[in-house]
């Protein structure tokens, strides 16, 4: 087999990038390069229509309110159909915070305004009066052994999952999806949604690899990823866990 190529579609890079979420793209790209896999990144913004068969992985980050409204509109009018089609065909998705919300059924703001989503996640979000802000540690629930996720959340939306979604992780420190049921994130098929910034993937490299593996398997079948030295990643992960624990109740 020749050199493998991972085709990534970065959605609304200049609109949905408020808390360093592009770090996830940097992490995916590097972790591919270090293994001799080519990461091809396409930037798609307002009015651009994606070819659903072209990409193996779609990424969308979080944005400010105004940007989120523009993106909501564009998802409804331009991209929604193609993205749903790609998802149904097994493409991978990673959606953070505002992107996670817009890929659900809808977002109802605190003022009662409704932003429709595109329903890739069986989940819906209602705006809350207060924001959940702080470090998060959560225990992975989605198989593959006991692992933790670390990140930083900053959202007022409360997200609930429907029966076709399963949660990603159980919150140990922080609030997660809604601050009540103890869950963080969501998985529907090969789509992952989460509130975690940080950036997420650099400090949770095993999740980065899981996403790369899933995305590649669509085109190349089962692939085994070459092992990388993640000692620095693990130190940063451990430091984030310590930092979160230190902040608890404070």
């Amino acid at each position: 087999m020749g050199r493998m190529v991972l085709r990534i579609c970065h959605l609304y890079p200049e609109l949905m990038n408020i808390y360093g979420d592009r770090g996830n793209i940097i992490a995916l790209k590097r972790r591919c390069e270090w293994r001799g896999i080519e990461a091809e990144i396409s930037l798609l913004s307002l009015e651009d229509k994606p070819d659903p068969r072209l990409y193996d992985l779609f990424f969308i980050g979080g944005g400010q309110d105004r940007e989120q409204e523009m993106v909501c509109h564009d998802l409804q009018k331009v991209k929604g159909e193609a993205l749903r089609e790609a998802h149904a065909a097994g493409a991978c998705f990673l959606a953070i915070c505002g992107g996670y919300q817009l890929l659900g059924h809808y977002f109802r703001t605190w003022k009662g305004e409704v932003l429709p989503g595109i329903g890739i996640f069986d989940a819906w979000t209602v705006g809350g009066e207060t924001r959940f802000i702080g470090n998060v540690v959560a225990e992975w629930e989605d198989g593959g052994g006991r692992r933790t996720l670390v990140g930083f959340e900053n959202h007022s939306g409360r997200t609930r999952l429907g029966p076709h979604s399963r949660p990603l992780a159980r919150v140990k420190v922080g609030h997660g999806n809604n601050g009540e049921d103890g869950w963080e994130g969501c998985r529907c098929g090969n789509a992952f949604g989460t509130y975690l910034h940080g950036s997420l993937l650099p400090k949770n490299p095993w999740l980065a690899d899981e996403i790369i593996r899933l995305a590649l398997s669509r085109r190349y079948g089962e692939v085994e990823l070459e092992h990388l030295d993640d000692s620095l990643e693990e130190r940063a992960h451990a430091a984030a866990v310590r930092r979160a624990a230190g902040k608890r109740g404070g």
């Binding site: 808390y19 360093g20 770090g23 940097i26 702080g134 470090n135 910034h197 940080g198 902040k247």
Partner: peptide
């Protein structure tokens, strides 16, 4: 640093 005066969220370094 991630003390209150720095901002507790360090995500920004990725920007």
């Amino acid at each position: 640093n991630d003390l209150t005066a720095d901002g507790r969220d360090v995500s920004w370094i990725w920007d």
